[in-house]
């Protein structure tokens, strides 16, 4: 038995604004019979002020899907399109008190229908079916794109595959994409940490010579020179051949007895760590 708040049950039992607005200025739809939940949102919008004067919905789905749709229509009425467009799925859930974690995708559906409706208005009122923008579909059972998953992770600070499933339904059926969802989670959550070095998307070995130089320079500038500077030295990039990076030590480092140790033990170690374990650093 789900733990539904009184407000969820109230909106489920007595849904507000049920129906379809005739000659609506905007029509947004999301979901399908296959998915098990669907929402059609129609809006009456004042062309001068862009204020949403009326909103109606039709929903196929469980109690929380109906409640999310109902409360959404109440939330957006009287708001301008710009204000309404800022509503997130979390706002919808908050308005209902809360939703069980497993049901968060119902609030996401509300947000998506609203997005589609806003787009519909911009296109002269032609009905718009919410579609994942990206080409890349991760979950084929529920047709969930990588972008939708990334958005859900960022908006709701998700950390586990199970949470992603609760919010987007991705991975909820056959489960084949769970590995891929984990990878997306790893990637997004790694990016959330303010990174010093850019997390290398492309392998170092596959970069063009110019890209390689840029990446090397970045590491030299951020991670290596500040250290050398403290000892009154520095380093200069001379050449790149495949995985071999040729550098020249400068300042105090150039004549230092420990120059070889600095080159291999520090510069090469850092470059291996930041770029690729296969890189070799040599004295030019």
């Amino acid at each position: 038995m789900w733990d539904y708040t009184d407000k969820v049950m109230d909106h489920f039992r007595h849904p507000r604004n049920v129906g379809v607005i005739e000659n609506a200025d905007a029509t947004g739809q999301v979901g399908s019979l296959v998915c098990g939940d669907a929402l059609k949102l129609t809006l009456k919008i004042n062309k001068e002020t862009e204020v949403i004067e009326d909103a109606k919905f039709e929903t196929f789905g469980c109690a929380s899907a109906i409640a999310s749709s109902s409360v959404l229509t109440e939330m957006i009425k009287g708001k301008t399109l710009a204000q309404a467009a800022k509503i997130t799925n979390q706002d919808i859930a908050d308005e209902l008190g809360s939703l069980p974690a497993e049901k968060m995708h119902c609030s996401v559906m509300g947000m998506e229908a609203l997005e589609a409706a806003v787009q519909s208005y911009r296109q002269g009122g032609k009905p718009v079916v919410f579609e994942q923008e990206s080409e890349k579909i991760v979950c084929h059972c529920f047709n969930v794109s990588e972008e939708a998953i990334i958005k859900a992770i960022r908006t709701n600070h998700l950390t586990t595959v199970e949470e992603v499933t609760f919010y987007t339904k991705a991975g909820g059926a056959c489960g084949k994409c769970k590995g891929e969802i984990q990878k997306i989670l790893d990637k997004v959550n790694a990016c959330e940490v303010p990174a010093t070095a850019s997390s290398p998307e492309k392998k170092f070995a596959d970069l063009t010579i110019v890209e390689k130089i840029k990446r090397i320079e970045k590491v030299l500038e951020e991670d290596i020179r500040p250290q050398l500077n403290m000892d009154g030295g520095s380093v200069e990039l001379v050449d790149v051949e495949g995985m071999t990076i040729k550098v020249r030590l400068k300042g105090m480092c150039s004549g230092c007895l420990a120059a070889d140790a600095t080159l291999k033990g520090f510069i090469e170690r850092v470059l291996k760590e930041k770029l690729d374990p296969a890189v070799i650093v040599e004295k030019a």
Binding site: G36, G61, C62, S64, E102, K103, H105, T165, G172, A173
Partner: peptide
């Protein structure tokens, strides 16, 4: 047997 009554998301 609806999806929504179980932990899973499909019927």
């Amino acid at each position: 047997g609806s999806a929504c009554t179980s932990g899973s998301l499909e019927p």
